[in-house]
Simulated assay, not measured.
Amino acid sequence: SSYGGRRTQGERDAMTVEIGYALFSAAFAAAVLFGAVVGPAYVFGLPAGVRSGLVGTGTVLAVVVFLVRVVSVLVRFGRGNQPSQPGRTRPDS
């Protein structure tokens, strides 16, 4: 594992779950942000130019939030901030 050996099945499963969590939570955050930025354009019937500007802005922000969320979750997982013993919140507790 961290010393160049092969990963155990548990470590591979944990990585798979973490990747799935990162993608799902990032997609959810991006969708919520996109809806918050673009939604008012359709609810209030704003002009087409303003609407297209908000759609563009919402798209860019959603992509940025998606990427930042995925990277932050996976980096945090890669650092191994896991408790050393089950039920413990800190390695020194």
Rank of each mutant, 00 (worst) to 15 (best):
S1E: 12
T16I: 03
T16F: 12
D13L: 14
R51I: 05
G20Y: 02
E18I: 05
P47E: 15
V38G: 02
V68S: 03
S93F: 03
A14E: 11
V65K: 00
I19M: 11
V65H: 00
G5H: 10
P83A: 13
P86I: 05
V73H: 11
G39N: 13
G56L: 09
D92E: 15
L33Y: 01
S52H: 11
G58Q: 08
G80I: 05
V17D: 06
V32Q: 03
V38E: 03
R69Q: 14
V60N: 02
V63R: 00
S93L: 07
Y21E: 05
T89G: 06
Y3T: 13
T59F: 14
S84L: 11
A36S: 14
A27V: 09
V60E: 03
Y3H: 15
F28H: 05
E11G: 07
R79M: 11
T8L: 05
A27P: 02
A41G: 14
A36H: 11
S52I: 08
G87P: 05
A27H: 02
R6N: 14
S52W: 11
P91Q: 02
I19E: 05
G45M: 04
G20E: 09
V63K: 00
S2P: 02
I19N: 01
P83T: 01
L33R: 00
V60C: 06
L67F: 12
F28T: 10
I19S: 01
T59D: 03
R79N: 10
V43T: 12
V37E: 04
E18Q: 08
L23H: 07
P47M: 11
A41H: 06
A36Q: 13
R79A: 10
V43A: 15
F77D: 06
P86K: 05
Q9M: 12
V68N: 00
G35V: 12
V37N: 01
A26C: 06
A14M: 07
G80L: 07
G58F: 05
V75H: 09
F24G: 05
R76G: 05
S93E: 15
D92P: 01
A48F: 12
L46K: 09
V43C: 12
R88C: 07
V65M: 00
A31C: 12
V65C: 01
G78H: 10
A41Y: 06
V64T: 02
T16K: 14
G53L: 14
Q82E: 13
F66T: 00
T8G: 07
L61W: 03
A48V: 13
R88L: 13
T57Q: 03
L46D: 06
F28S: 10
F44R: 15
G80R: 08
R7G: 01
G87E: 12
D13V: 07
A36E: 10
T57K: 03
L67A: 14
F44K: 14
R88A: 14
S2Y: 04
V43Y: 15
V17N: 08
A62H: 01
D13Y: 04
S2D: 11
P86M: 05
R69C: 04
G80E: 06
L54P: 03
A36Y: 14
L23F: 15
D13N: 11
R90F: 15
Y42T: 04
